[in-house]
Design a protein around this nucleic acid. Structure first.
Lengths: 222, 222
DNA sequence: TAGATTGTTAATCGATTAACAATC
DNA sequence: TAGATTGTTAATCGATTAACAATC
C-alpha cells in the first residue's frame, strides 16, 4: 500500500511537528510555511515538505499549510483520534510513576491497569488504577481493550512478560528494561533504556562534545 | 582529532555491543567473531567490523576479537571506567523511581542528589539520597562533582531547569519532559519522551505494522 | 503582476553492506 | 596447507538538501 512510502525517519519527526503545530494553533496562526515549521522543529524546510508530501498532506503555493488541517492530518496518522488503553506490567517505582503521570491520559494513552506478581500489591490501587495479578493479563486485556503493554519490571523478567503480552494479543510494547526482547514480527516494540542514554551522554561528555540528539531524531533545537 | 570518524550511529550501537559482550564473557567465551556478535546484536557483520575499526579496535584474522579486550575498549570509549555522578531535578514520582533504580549506580551513574522546590520535600531522603532545594544546585554540583543532570520535573519547568543546570556547569542533560530544551553547544542533551514513543507505537499499530526499532537503533533482535 | 511558497527533481551526503584480498 | 575471519574497498541504499519550475 501507499503507506510504504513513509520512512521511519519521517514517523519519528511527526510528534515533533505536531507539538510545534499545537503551539502555533494556540497563537491563532492560521497558516504556517515549511520554513517556519522547519525552524520550530530544527530540521530543513525541504525535509518538512517532503515529509508532509509523503503523508499526502498538501499546502497552498505562495501561502503555506493550514495549521488546523496539519494538526488534524498528523493526529490521524499518529492514531491520536482514538484512545490506546495501556497496561503497565510492574507496580514498582517506575510503574507507579507512570500511573501518576497524567500526561499520558491527556495524550490518549490512558493507563487502565497495573500488573504485578506481589500478592501484597494485588487488589490495591495506584492513582485510582487497579493492580491485578499478571496471571489475569489475558482476561484483562480483552475486558479493558488494552492496546499497549509497558514493561516496567526488573530486567530479568522482561522476556517472560513480553511473551505474556504477546499471547494476550497485545501488538505494541514499550520496554523500559535494559534487556532487548524478542517478539513475533506482527508486534511493534520500542525500548526506552535510561542506562543506554546515560552511556551515550558520557561518551560525548568524555570527548570534546559533539552534539547528540534525543530519540534518534533531532528533537532538540540547537 | 581522530574522534570525528566515529558516527552517531556507531555510538548508539556501542551499549548494545557491550551488553552482548558482557553476556559472552560470562559464558567464558574468549573470542567472538563479527558474525557472532552481529547476530547477538541484530546488525550486519560488516557493520560490526566497521564500527570496531572506527574505534581502532582490531581483531585477529581467522580467529575473531578478544572478548575481554572488546569489553575493556568499548567501556573506555563509553567512559564507563569512571563514575558519572547524577543529579535528578524533580523529586516527584519519576524522580523517586529513578532514585530507587539500583541499576544506575551499578552501571556507573550513581544518583547523588535530588532537587525540588517543594519545602515539604527539602531535607528528606529518597532511597538514601538527599533532597535539596533547587536554589542549592550550583553549590551541590561543585560539592558532589555532579556530571549529569536529569530533568524529571513537569514539562513547563524544563527550560528553566535546563538553564539552571547549564549555569551550574553541567555538560550532560537527560530530559524526561515532553518539551525540547535549548542549551549552548557545549552541552549534550538527550531526551526520553514517553508520549512520543507511544505515538510512534500507535502509528505502526494503526497501520498493518512495519517493524519499529527502539532508541533509533536496531536494539531489538528480530 | 510581483512576491511567496509549494511540490518535486536531481544532486549530495552518509551509512550500510557485499565482496574479497590479506593473513592468522 | 586449508579453513576461518578480519580489514577495507567499492557498490548500494536511503535519507537529506539544494534548486527551481509551478502556481497561489
Amino acid at each position: 500500500m501507499s503507506s510504504s512510502e513513509i520512512s521511519a525517519a519521517t514517523v519519528g519527526r511527526l510528534p515533533a511537528y505536531l507539538r510545534a503545530l499545537i503551539e502555533l494553533a494556540g497563537d491563532e496562526s492560521a497558516t504556517v510555511s515549511s520554513d517556519h515549521l522547519a525552524e520550530l522543529v530544527g530540521v530543513n524546510p525541504a525535509t518538512v515538505r517532503r515529509d508532509l508530501a509523503s503523508l499526502r498532506i498538501t499546502g497552498t503555493r505562495g501561502v503555506g499549510y493550514d495549521v488546523k488541517y496539519l494538526v488534524f492530518e498528523i493526529s490521524v496518522e499518529l492514531g491520536l483520534n482514538q484512545e490506546w488503553p495501556v497496561a503497565v506490567i510492574g507496580a514498582g517505582n517506575l510503574g507507579r510513576a507512570l500511573a501518576n503521570y497524567a500526561g499520558l491520559t491527556e495524550r490518549g494513552f490512558p493507563i487502565r491497569c497495573l500488573f504485578d506478581t506481589d500478592q501484597a500489591k494485588i487488589g490495591t490501587e495506584v492513582a485510582g488504577i487497579p493492580v491485578r495479578h499478571l496471571d489475569d493479563l489475558a482476561g484483562t486485556v480483552a475486558e479493558l481493550g488494552i492496546a499497549v503493554g509497558v514493561i516496567a519490571t526488573p530486567a530479568d523478567g522482561a522476556q517472560e512478560v513480553a511473551d505474556a503480552l504477546v499471547s494476550a494479543g497485545i501488538g505494541s510494547i514499550l520496554n523500559f528494561t535494559a534487556h532487548p526482547i524478542i517478539v513475533p514480527d506482527r508486534v511493534v516494540v520500542r525500548r526506552v533504556d535510561i542506562a543506554t542514554e546515560l552511556q551515550i551522554l558520557s561518551f560525548y561528555q568524555q570527548r570534546g562534545v559533539g552534539t547528540s540528539t534525543g530519540t534518534g531524531v533531532p528533537l532538540e533545537v540547537r
